[in-house]
């Protein structure tokens, strides 16, 4: 496959709470099996990846997910006419719904994707994760979805502490008393609205697993990682690859039962007695995905190959003890570049 593939990648916001795009591109660029022309797709004019010309060949602004699939398709048609895209790798949670919906249309245009289908995508939704676990035999902390404050009041007697109070999209607060639950409820209510989720607290070690599924039930790559240190936003500052068969088995079982196609990240809590609870499933590559390439299982490059129809054998080995340490770097550019992407939507 020694030719130049045209690949579009989103989530170029390599900032303090980073999107995975730049890491995905870095991994793709490193694969010796193919060359790529990388098209960056951005929402904001200041996404750092836009200005990394050694990684990104050309960039285009695309409409925010909330504008819907019609707008996105129209914009992609324009970009496709310019660039003859062969593959799109979307990396934002919020945009995935639209890209999955457009999958067939993109395919008829000659643009490939390697995404889960809508059923797979929705089954791991935060609000449905508990049922998902029950159905497939995974440990998932019990949760209760609250639609009104009244429902919380009714629960006062039966709650056990600590309990995690979570927003529909973001935010999670650990509460140790009913007072704290109420306070957290109201705080999250003000920010994210209803419903609010009360989730059983699970004590243990937090592990993240980057997984790539082939869509037929086979896990092509599984890399477990433990965060060594986190930022005050809860993001990984540094992390290390782990050797733990239980985690690999869990990820393999997850892929087998969901037939997941594409990359995903399992957030797992490993209890002291060794039980792995799935806390969340992110339906895309994590921001630390470059670590998979560094440890010997280049997940983004493997995804590209599978998307292009090449058979990819499951990896069998990775380097344990590989560490990533995230650092910041001030990229220098000029006002003219900012004006171009901001005003013309292209750079």
């Amino acid at each position: 496959m020694k030719k130049k593939l045209v690949i579009a990648v989103t989530a170029l916001n390599a900032i303090d709470s980073p999107g995975p795009g730049v890491a995905v591109i870095r991994a793709i660029r490193e694969c010796p099996d193919f060359e790529a022309r990388i098209i960056g797709l951005s929402y904001e004019a200041l996404e750092p990846g836009l200005y990394m010309h050694e990684l990104v060949d050309k960039s285009y602004q695309i409409p925010y997910p909330s504008a819907g699939t019609d707008s996105l398709l129209a914009r992609l048609e324009y970009i496709h006419a310019e660039e003859q895209l062969e593959l799109i790798i979307p990396n934002f949670d919020a945009e995935l719904f639209n890209f999955i919906k457009l999958r067939d249309k993109l395919h008829t245009m000659g643009i490939r994707t390697f995404l889960p289908d809508l059923v797979q995508f929705e089954s791991r939704d935060k609000l449905k994760l508990f049922d998902f676990g029950k159905k497939h035999g995974f440990l998932v902390p019990r949760d209760r979805v609250l639609h009104e404050f009244r429902e919380l009041k009714k629960m006062e007697e039966e709650l056990e502490y600590p309990v995690v109070v979570k927003g529909k999209f973001y935010d999670a607060v650990i509460a140790n008393s009913y007072d704290q639950v109420e306070k957290a409820f109201l705080k999250i209510l003000a920010k994210w609205g209803l419903p609010i989720i009360l989730q059983d607290f699970v004590k243990g070690t937090e592990i993240n697993i980057a997984v790539l599924g082939d869509g037929k039930g086979k896990a092509i790559s599984i890399i477990p990682m433990r965060k060594l240190y986190i930022t005050d936003k809860g993001k990984a500052w540094a992390g290390i690859t782990l050797d733990d068969d239980r985690l690999v088995a869990l990820a393999r079982q997850f892929i087998a039962s969901t037939q997941w196609r594409g990359g995903c990240e399992l957030e797992v809590m490993l209890t002291d007695d060794g039980k792995p609870f799935i806390m969340e499933v992110n339906p895309r590559f994590p921001a630390w995905i470059y670590l998979t390439a560094a440890a010997g299982q280049n997940q983004p490059a493997s995804l590209v190959k599978m998307a292009m129809g090449e058979p990819v054998a499951p990896f069998t080995h990775y380097e344990v003890g590989k560490i990533f340490i995230r650092y910041s770097w001030d990229l220098i550019t000029d006002i003219a570049e900012f004006q171009k992407i901001s005003g013309n939507g292209e750079l």
Binding site: I335, A336, F338, Q339, K340, G343, N344
Partner: peptide
Amino acid sequence: EGFLFNPTTGDS
């Protein structure tokens, strides 16, 4: 291309 840049304020 019709872009303005105000060096005093940094606005485009």
